[in-house]
């Protein structure tokens, strides 16, 4: 019984310590930025986490826009309101699906790769070797990846929304015969730049921070064995998906909850 209580205590303390390490690492990564030679490394990482995620983002954006147009059309046409297809597709993409689905895909595509890469660097003692050579691994390895994730994900979310709206146009207008003029003009009358687009960007910046932070910390803090790395990779995807969905509710409540 006492053992059991002691175990709970020990676990709690180790979780709090892990949170502390995560906070310190985030602090180190954010303030390790301003160095000109790091920009090269950051661009290299934007290529890895951003450009290489482009394909999956564009394809899923296209199909999600197309599916929403198809589903929305079959419901709206009963009320003779198929003109509202444009705002429906645009608002749900800009406010919710763009940031959220991008963050989930990003966690799966780029977050897991970041964790595995940094975890393996730790397991093969590359991080310790960097320290031996008086190179700060936070500055050399972690910071470029963190900033690359922060920069790439909002960009990917914007591309996702834009491609989704074009996909909705493709199905709604070209295939199902919604009037192109009403698709765009009612969308323009409904969508507000500050209310919808900027709030979506703010959401994706928050998600980018959380997903990249979790991914990098899980790699940096992984138990340096093959088992430990696989566990860390799984935890990255699970934790960041949960964090994104939970935060999304909070952000939506703050941004759109009260008129």
């Amino acid at each position: 019984m006492i053992d059991w209580v002691a175990q709970i205590g020990a676990r709690t303390i180790s979780k709090i310590a892990a949170t502390g390490r995560a906070g310190l690492m985030l602090f180190g990564a954010i303030f390790a930025l301003p160095q000109l030679k790091n920009i090269r490394l950051t661009i290299q990482q934007i290529y890895v986490v951003g450009v290489q995620s482009l394909l999956i983002i564009i394809v899923s954006g296209l199909f999600i826009g197309m599916v929403m147009a198809l589903q929305g059309y079959t419901i709206l046409v009963d009320y003779g309101a198929e003109g509202s297809l444009g705002p429906m597709v645009a608002l749900s993409l800009l406010r919710e699906l763009g940031p959220v689905v991008t963050a989930l895909l990003f966690a799966g595509r780029a977050g897991s790769a970041l964790t595995a890469e940094i975890g393996l660097m730790k397991a093969t003692e590359q991080l310790s070797s960097l320290e031996m050579m008086a190179v700060d691994p936070l500055r050399r390895v972690v910071a470029p990846r963190f900033w690359a994730g922060m920069i790439s994900m909002p960009m990917l979310a914007l591309i996702f929304s834009a491609v989704g709206i074009l996909g909705g146009h493709f199905v709604g207008v070209d295939w199902l015969g919604v009037d192109a003029g009403s698709y765009w003009s009612i969308m323009q009358a409904t969508v507000d730049w500050n209310e919808d687009v900027v709030n979506g960007i703010i959401k994706s910046v928050v998600f980018a921070t959380v997903v990249t932070w979790i991914a990098i910390f899980k790699g940096y803090d992984a138990i340096p064995t093959s088992e430990g790395i696989s566990k860390a990779t799984t935890e990255t995807v699970v934790f960041s998906s949960l964090a994104v969905l939970g935060l999304d509710f909070v952000l939506t409540a703050i941004m759109f909850g009260i008129e």
């Binding site: 090269r40 934007i46 450009v51 960009m155 914007l158 491609v163 709206i165 969308m187 507000d192 687009v197």
Partner: peptide, 28 residues
């Protein structure tokens, strides 16, 4: 690195195009 830079440049241009689409065509 040159190839990487070009591809990242394309990525940035795509984002600008998406923002322009959202700003001018969607949010007017």
């Amino acid at each position: 690195t040159r190839k990487t830079e070009i591809l990242v440049g394309i990525f940035v241009l795509l984002t600008i195009a998406a923002t322009l689409l959202l700003g001018l065509k969607v949010a007017n």
